[in-house]
C-alpha cells in the first residue's frame, strides 16, 4: 500500500505570521437534514460535537463539525479514523436520506497563525476579518484569491483554511506571500 501524504508534505513558512500545512486530516462531507435526530446523534458520536449553528465551526482537538450550508457539514476526525467513521454513519443513518463521503485526500488544510493572521486572510478573501465580525468559532465559505476555500478561526486566534488539494499549492503560496509582505495595519 502507498503511504498517505499531505499535499505539501508538511511545508511551513515561518515568520511573524506562520503559514503551515496542517498535515493529514480526516474530512467527511455529510449532507442531509441537519435537524434529524439520527443525524445529530451520529455527528455527536463521531466528532463529540453538537451540530454547529449557521456559519459556525465547533472543533476541539482535531475533531469537530463545521457548517458548510443549510444541509451540509464537514466533519473533522483523525485521518486514520475517516473510513471507519463513514462506515459508522452509513450504519447509523440507514433509512435516512443522506450522503457521507470521505474527502480527506481531496482536501488541503492550511493554518495561518500569528498576530497579523487576520490581515493575511483579509488580503485574499472578500470577508470582514475584524475581530468583532469574525471571532473564534466563526466560519465562512468563500474564496481565497481565485479559488474556493472554507475557513474558520480557532480559540487561539489561528485561521484554518480548507481548500481543494489540487489548488493547495496555490493557496499556500498566496498566504505565504501575503504573510511575507508584512502588516498593513488595517485590522490592528
Amino acid at each position: 500500500m502507498s503511504e498517505p501524504v499531505s499535499f505539501l508534505g508538511g511545508r511551513v513558512a515561518e515568520g511573524a505570521v506562520t503559514v503551515r500545512d496542517a498535515g493529514l486530516r480526516g474530512m467527511i462531507t455529510l449532507r442531509g437534514d441537519l435537524a434529524a435526530t439520527k443525524v445529530k446523534n451520529v455527528v455527536k458520536k463521531i466528532t463529540g460535537q453538537a451540530i454547529p449553528a449557521q456559519r459556525k465551526a465547533s472543533v476541539a482537538e482535531g475533531r469537530g463539525a463545521v457548517w458548510m450550508s443549510p444541509d451540509e457539514l464537514l466533519l473533522l476526525v483523525p485521518y486514520a479514523e475517516a473510513e471507519e467513521a463513514v462506515a459508522t454513519m452509513a450504519k447509523a443513518l440507514k433509512g435516512v436520506h443522506h450522503l457521507a463521503v470521505n474527502v480527506s485526500d481531496a482536501r488541503a488544510h492550511i493554518t495561518v497563525e500569528g498576530t497579523g493572521a487576520a490581515e493575511v486572510m483579509a488580503k485574499n478573501a472578500p470577508v470582514d476579518f475584524s475581530s468583532a465580525a469574525f471571532g473564534a468559532g466563526d466560519f465562512r465559505r468563500s474564496r481565497v484569491g481565485q479559488v474556493a476555500a472554507a475557513f474558520w478561526k480557532d480559540e487561539a486566534g489561528a485561521f484554518h483554511v480548507v481548500s481543494f488539494r489540487s489548488v493547495g499549492d496555490y493557496v499556500f503560496d498566496l498566504l505565504r506571500v501575503s504573510a511575507e509582505a508584512g502588516p498593513v495595519g488595517a485590522l490592528s
Partner: peptide, 9 residues
C-alpha cells in the same frame, strides 16, 4: 448563509 456576499462570490 445570512452573509452579505459581494459580487465576486
Amino acid at each position: 448563509c445570512g452573509v452579505n456576499a459581494e459580487e465576486t462570490e
